[in-house]
Design a protein around this nucleic acid. Structure first.
Length: 900
DNA sequence: GCGGACTGCTTACCT
DNA sequence: ACAGGTAAGCAGTCCGCG
């Protein structure tokens, strides 16, 4: 539950390694298989990258899609030796279907069903209904086409079965339809027990999974960590272990970035219209191959920028030829990376080519969808979407990047900033533009290549866990990942996948009252801190508290509020909910085994420095991926967007969490340990002895089955009376600052600098005796900053005084109030800036009326100094309280002056 | 007409 | 489109005040 961790994937960038296959357990290279016949990318108009080999050596399943023309599932496989994508079409005759409670005889009465152009046939099947807790007989309605099940048009099975049957019989309760919302290719993955990201081969035209014989030892080792567990739990661990211990390919890929000429500087060109020419394109390959395509234009200087000597630079007289060459180069790479390519680069290229140069569809290797753009010959990954993902941002990259722009993410993760120019892009020379363009593509590529390709590995491992194509897993959120792996497990066990609304109707009600207005249920406990400076503080926390609770307490939508009378006494504390004592919940089993695998195997592995480099890299990726999933595994149950949405599951988890921590606090007190603070799953203990710590850990394990461990020791910690707000100096150095204003991103740099100086000074303090001296210097730091403000000596421009606040929604949606950053944004809009949700607004506080001004147009003379003094005060009050200091006294106001 | 108490909105953060 | 809890600042409203 801790957000920060040594396990995040951020690190100093390394040179990308050249290695065909990175295998955690050394695999035989698949060279014994015949090499697939080569098919050169021809320059003719034919786009037939569908290469359907009879035999294919071990290849990674990277995507599954539905081919509407052929009406079947089509797979993309990445062969790591030739580094090409091959296609395989389903040959098993698998078809789309949904399930319904109506028997065949009744369904046959429904004309619109049997007469539907997409209708294929009915089958009677047995399933286990997890909501009714019994075997049921249902009818499988099989169709020729997924659209017949539940497309966007009306008249599909999902709608007409209940509608028409109700009309026919006049019954109040319409018959149920299940699994009609599942995408066909996902259904195909579930039914065939496929795992995207894993190795398959094609043998005499059939798809065959490749068994990983060499990883057997590792699997055995892992399983031996779980001695006395139930068979089902062990099987689950084994499945996860197989998915996670498989080798990883080297992804041959290219980053694409385009530049478009535009008349208005502050506006992004519309990709639908694609009205302006594509003037420059940069391609940056994982083989470090650089290609720059430049359109010749009137009046543009060549410029004197030196481009890299190994870059292939081509000038084009005609934009059409440029596009042709670009498409040809793109086809050479199985994986295409962009930053915002779904919404800009790819649709722009497609529409430009179609609308202005009459390209045929098959001449463009781009497929434009509503929200996603694919490349027809391979896999397109839009890194904007991936890095935008909150879970990835926080848990995988430890919140290292704040806003999601190529520059911000690039700077934070790569130390490779964008190239800046004083003039607008339209005025750049050819070589200047090319340099800029190439750098963007380089950043894009490196975002996936740094730290030994962690990002590619992360996407791969997530797609294995979630059973989703790489394209989807990189674009969708954690609730989809968790939903899909749970759906898959339902199918594997022949369980009916319940409709979300049925779960909600049966067990949707919560029974606690949230502290925050508008929330569904009560959450975690935050203990009031003991204000002051405390030396020798041990921070103990529960390892994955919520996943542990889900595991130990058997939580899941099936087991909460179950049907059995005899379970009703098995109450969740502080709620009216009960938990089943007869059956095991699927979520409990799966999340539990995943948690145990992370704690028992992957976390220790990640600290093992004796492993070879590539293995070390892999063993940092996996715990991060697991962390992302586990951290969200509780929250999704409280989210309506989640397919198995069940608020009582989330509510019970939080309630048990409160119970666990409350008991632990009581235990500490009974041992005579002072509890200084605690939040959700952590306890700050004042100077406990090693024995006391041991007793706490042991007690927690035996009485609650929860693992309580020391996370860190503070030499001393500083608390005010505020929750979620403290500063801790670690034993051995380093400062943790949590929740303090001085660290928040929106605060002006001018104030942050003072806060940082304070931090540095506090870090020097070794003992209570050192504080006297430190306090003196802290007073000086604050007084200096204050005086400089008063004397208006902050620099040539008010840059350092700017607040930086994100625009949370489109400007027009601020209806109830107009916050200051919105006022600033409105001014910017007036002078021609395009303002959209997610933009970071920088503004300063001024004396004149709207009291704020965008920093771009503000000058030193108009700054409202007193406002900044007030901010300085509130920022430092958070610390000064505890140190026994007073801001106003520090800046030289006497008690009397303050009173007045 | 104005100021203080209050509520609600908004953002950033913690676990 | 994972959750709830907390801090802070500001916008807007209501009420009392001869």
């Amino acid at each position: 539950m801790t957000a920060q961790s040594q396990l995040d994937l951020f690190g100093i960038p390394e040179k990308q390694k050249k290695k065909p296959i990175v295998s955690p357990s050394p695999e035989k290279k698949p060279t014994e298989y015949p090499s697939p016949k080569k098919k050169a990318a021809s320059e003719t108009k034919t786009v037939d990258y569908h290469d359907f080999p009879e035999d294919l050596p071990p290849s990674y399943l990277v995507s599954v899609m539905y081919d509407g023309k052929k009406q079947l599932a089509s797979l993309k496989l990445y062969e790591p030796v030739s580094q090409k994508i091959y296609f395989w079409d389903d040959n098993t005759g698998h078809k789309p279907y949904c399930l319904t409670s109506l028997p065949i005889e009744e369904l046959e009465k429904l004309r619109r069903v049997t007469g539907h152009s997409g209708f294929d046939h009915f089958e009677t099947v047995e399933k286990f209904d997890p909501l009714l807790d019994k075997q049921v007989t249902v009818t499988k309605v099989v169709t020729k086409d997924p659209l017949a099940i539940g497309g966007r048009q009306s008249g599909c099975m999902r709608d007409i079965i209940p509608e028409d049957y109700q009309k026919l019989t006049g019954f109040e309760e319409p018959p149920k339809v299940w699994e009609s919302y599942i995408r066909y290719y996902q259904s195909y993955i579930y039914d065939n027990n496929l795992a995207p990201g894993m190795l398959y081969k094609i043998q005499k035209g059939n798809l065959v999974p490749v068994q990983q014989t060499a990883s057997k030892d590792t699997i055995e080792k892992i399983l031996s960590l779980f001695p006395d567990v139930e068979k089902e739990f062990l099987e689950s661990v084994e499945t996860w272990a197989r998915l996670l211990e498989s080798p990883v390919p080297d992804f041959r890929r290219v980053a694409l970035d385009i530049e478009v000429s535009s008349s208005i500087v502050t506006r992004v060109p519309d990709p639908q219209e694609a009205a302006h020419p594509v003037v420059c394109v940069a391609l940056f390959g994982s083989d470090r191959k650089k290609e720059i395509l430049i359109l010749k234009r009137d009046g543009i200087e060549n410029g004197d920028k030196k481009l890299p000597s190994d870059a292939i630079v081509t000038y084009f007289d005609s934009e059409k030829k440029l596009l042709q060459k670009l498409f040809e180069s793109l086809r050479d790479y199985p994986f295409v990376l962009t930053f915002n390519g779904d919404d800009f680069d790819l649709p722009y290229l497609y529409n430009r080519a179609r609308n202005h140069f009459s390209f045929e569809r098959n001449q463009i290797p781009i497929q434009v969808g509503r929200r996603v753009c694919r490349v027809s010959h391979g896999v397109h990954i839009d890194l904007y979407k991936f890095f935008f993902n909150r879970s990835i941002q926080i848990y995988a990259f430890g919140n290292k990047y704040r806003d999601i722009t190529l520059n911000a993410v690039g700077t934070a993760l790569l130390e490779l900033p964008k190239i800046e120019f004083e003039k607008p892009l339209s005025e750049l020379s050819y070589t200047e533009l090319a340099e800029y363009n190439l750098r963007d593509s380089e950043i894009t590529l490196d975002l996936t290549a740094f730290n030994d390709n962690v990002v590619m590995k992360l996407i791969l491992v997530l797609s294995r866990i979630a059973r989703m194509p790489l394209e989807d897993v990189s674009r969708q959120g954690v609730s989809r990942w968790i939903r899909n792996f749970l759906y898959h497990e339902h199918r594997q066990r022949n369980m009916l996948i319940p409709n979300s609304e049925d779960i909600l109707a049966l067990k949707g009600a919560t029974s606690t009252k949230a502290i925050i207005k508008g929330k569904k249920y009560k959450g975690a406990i935050v203990v009031d801190p003991v204000p002051g400076v405390h030396f020798d503080v041990a921070v103990m926390d529960f390892a994955s508290l919520y996943p542990s609770i889900i595991k130990v307490y058997n939580l899941g939508y099936q087991t909460l509020l179950c049907k059995h009378e005899e379970c009703k006494t098995n109450k969740v504390p502080e709620t009216s909910h009960w938990i089943c004592t007869k059956n095991k919940a699927l979520e409990s089993l799966l999340i539990g085994s995943l948690r145990d695998l992370r704690v028992k195997w992957y976390k220790p592995k990640s600290k093992d420095k004796t492993l070879p480099k590539d293995l070390q890299s892999w063993y940092t990726v996996i715990p991060s991926a697991l962390k992302v999933i586990l951290n969200a595994s509780y929250g999704v149950f409280g989210s309506p967007a989640f397919g198995l949405y069940c608020p009582p599951v989330a509510e019970a988890t939080a309630a048990i969490g409160r119970h666990v921590i409350t008991q632990t606090i009581e235990k500490a007190k009974s041992l005579g340990i002072e509890v200084l603070y605690g939040d959700t799953d952590s306890l700050f203990l004042k100077n406990p002895s090693p024995e006391q710590i041991e007793i706490m850990a042991e007690w927690s394990k035996t009485t609650m089955e929860m693992e309580l461990e020391v996370e860190k020791f503070y030499r001393y910690a500083v608390f005010s009376s505020r929750k979620k707000n403290y500063l801790g100096i670690l034993k051995g150095g380093g400062v943790d600052v949590k929740g303090m204003t001085g660290k928040k991103r929106h605060i002006p740099l001018y104030i942050k600098k003072a806060f940082y100086a304070l931090e540095e000074r506090l870090e020097q303090v070794q003992s209570p005796a050192d504080f006297d001296e430190a306090k003196k210097e802290i007073k000086k730091i604050i007084r200096d900053r204050y005086l400089r403000l008063k004397q208006r000596r902050w620099g040539d421009s008010p840059e350092e005084l700017a607040f930086h606040v994100v625009l949370g929604k489109p400007l027009k949606d601020y209806k109830k109030t107009t916050p200051q950053h919105v006022k600033a944004a409105l001014i910017l809009k007036k002078i021609g800036y395009e303002m959209k949700a997610g933009d970071l607004i920088s503004f300063v506080k001024v004396l004149k009326d709207p009291r704020v001004k965008p920093v771009q147009i503000a000058s030193n003379s108009e700054i409202d100094v007193d406002k900044y003094v007030a901010y300085l005060q509130s920022t430092f009050d958070q610390i000064l309280d505890a140190l026994g200091l007073d801001f106003e006294e520090i800046i030289g106001l006497t008690k009397l002056e303050r009173f007045m």
